[in-house]
Amino acid sequence: MSTCFYTASSLDGFIATPDDSLDWLLNQDIDENGPMAYPGFIADVGALAMGATTYEWVMEHENGEWTYDQPTWVFTHRDLRPPQHGDVRLVQGDVRRVHAEMTAVAEGRDIWIVGGGELAGQFADAGLLDEVWVQFAPVTLGAGAPLLPRRLDLELIDVARNRAFACTRYRVLHDAQGRDAA
């Protein structure tokens, strides 16, 4: 079981535009059955974590329908409503406590930090982030939400090309106390 931040990024290191849009990503050329593609990744995921902005984007673009089968923890200080169908838990506070719940529910499967970069950074700060998977799209945004607003030491463990994307997978290096090495 691993806790992974799996995401796409522009070449200049942004995962969303300044107005939190992912539209730049939706017209990119990727093989859904190719290397490091979403269907292969999600098949091993037992629980999800996401921030409020990501949750709101998903709900808007799925017309209010929840499309994930896995239990999902949404970290928020906002007054959000969970969808009518699906296991969505609105939480706040320390990611360590929530990670313990997620681990129990995931039953040996991976935990996916869906977004955003700040939330993934909080898991990294707590020494709980194991891997970072980034699909780099052939686009620059110039500004927006940064991929990971932290310094992390990473080890490249896999790289592949999936049509227009440069796909990378890294292991987060931890120090002797289990914290990130940075």
Rank of each mutant, 00 (worst) to 15 (best):
R161N: 00
Y170I: 07
G93P: 10
N63Y: 02
R89F: 11
G64Y: 04
A143C: 07
R96N: 13
R179G: 15
V105E: 09
A104H: 08
S21P: 07
P146V: 04
I15M: 07
D87N: 15
G117S: 03
I15N: 00
Y68E: 06
D110E: 09
A106G: 12
T3S: 10
A126F: 01
S21C: 04
W24M: 03
Y68W: 13
R78N: 12
L154M: 06
A104T: 06
S10H: 14
A43R: 14
D31R: 08
G93V: 10
T72R: 06
G64V: 09
L22R: 00
Q177V: 04
L11D: 05
R171L: 14
D130C: 07
S10A: 15
L128P: 00
L25T: 02
I157F: 05
Y55V: 07
Q84W: 00
R150G: 03
A176N: 06
V139Y: 08
G64P: 01
F136A: 15
D79S: 15
G46E: 06
M102R: 03
F75M: 12
N162S: 09
P82W: 09
Q177I: 04
P71Q: 07
V91S: 01
D12C: 06
D79P: 11
Y6P: 00
D19Q: 15
L154P: 01
L128K: 02
T103V: 08
Q28N: 10
D130G: 10
A37D: 10
P83W: 02
A143H: 06
M36N: 04
A145L: 12
H77Q: 14
D130S: 13
Y68F: 14
R96I: 14
P18K: 11
I157S: 04
N27F: 08
E155Y: 00
D44M: 06
V91L: 00
L119E: 00
G178V: 03
M1Q: 07
W57R: 09
Y38H: 14
A120N: 00
E107P: 00
A145H: 05
R169W: 00
L80N: 02
C4N: 15
W112T: 07
C4I: 15
V91R: 01
F123A: 05
L152K: 02
W112G: 05
F75C: 11
T53H: 08
S21Y: 06
A16R: 10
V132L: 15
W24I: 01
Y38V: 09
V74D: 04
N33W: 01
P39S: 14
G127P: 10
A176M: 05
Q84L: 04
R97E: 05
M59V: 00
D29G: 01
G144K: 13
W133P: 01
A100C: 06
R81C: 12
V132G: 01
L156C: 12
D44P: 00
T53Y: 05
A145I: 13
Y38E: 13
D69W: 02
L156I: 09
H174I: 02
E56G: 00
T54H: 12
D20F: 13
V172F: 08
T76E: 01
L129D: 10
D44L: 01
Y55A: 05
L148A: 02
P83Q: 02
N33D: 06
E62F: 09
S21Q: 10
A37T: 10
T3W: 05
A143S: 10
N27D: 15
D175G: 08
D110M: 04
R171I: 10
